[in-house]
Simulated scan of single mutants.
Amino acid sequence: MDVTINVVDGVVPADYLLSLCGWLHEESELRGRVSLTERAPEPGTLGSLPEALVVALGSGGPAVLASAVFAWLQRGTGKVSLKLTQADGAAVEIQAEGVRNLSASELPVHVQQLARALEPPGRS
């Protein structure tokens, strides 16, 4: 099952996508399962920019992805929102500011909620 990640609010979406891509590549369970999609270059520009990340999730992948996304959002300093969309169109949006304000006891609850939301239909 694939999950597409878009930056829906951020100063330079391409920079956030590249940073998150590098972060996700550090997760051994996600290594080789993360790819960037690029949009066609605008007329008069040199090259294309990343448009989204696509993560191919295997068994246990939703929990790993949820944990990694929350960790990345917590450590960041920018104001960014991510939209994670499954192939069936189901989507979840997460804002960095909200994640950074979570207490130590709230964080695992939210990670688990995201992991459940990313489970394929019939498995959650």
Rank of each mutant, 00 (worst) to 15 (best):
A66M: 14
G98C: 01
G58D: 14
G61L: 04
V55Y: 11
A91Q: 06
E97S: 12
A66Q: 12
A96F: 07
A90Y: 14
G89N: 03
A68S: 09
G76A: 04
G98D: 03
V64H: 06
V80S: 02
T77N: 14
E97A: 14
A87W: 10
T85D: 08
T85Y: 03
L57Q: 10
A91V: 03
L84K: 13
V92M: 07
R75H: 05
K83S: 15
G60R: 02
V99F: 08
A91F: 05
L57K: 09
G98I: 02
T85M: 12
V64S: 06
L82T: 03
G98Q: 02
A68M: 04
G89R: 10
V80K: 00
G60M: 04
T77P: 13
V69L: 03
A90P: 01
W72M: 08
G76M: 01
F70N: 09
R75Y: 02
G78C: 00
A90W: 12
G78T: 00
A66S: 15
D88A: 04
L57H: 09
T77M: 09
W72S: 08
A91P: 14
T77E: 13
G89L: 02
W72A: 09
V64D: 04
A96R: 02
L65H: 08
G89V: 01
P62S: 06
L84F: 07
G61Q: 05
G58C: 09
A63R: 11
G76W: 00
S81L: 05
G60C: 02
G60N: 01
G78K: 00
S59N: 07
G61I: 03
A90R: 10
G58P: 02
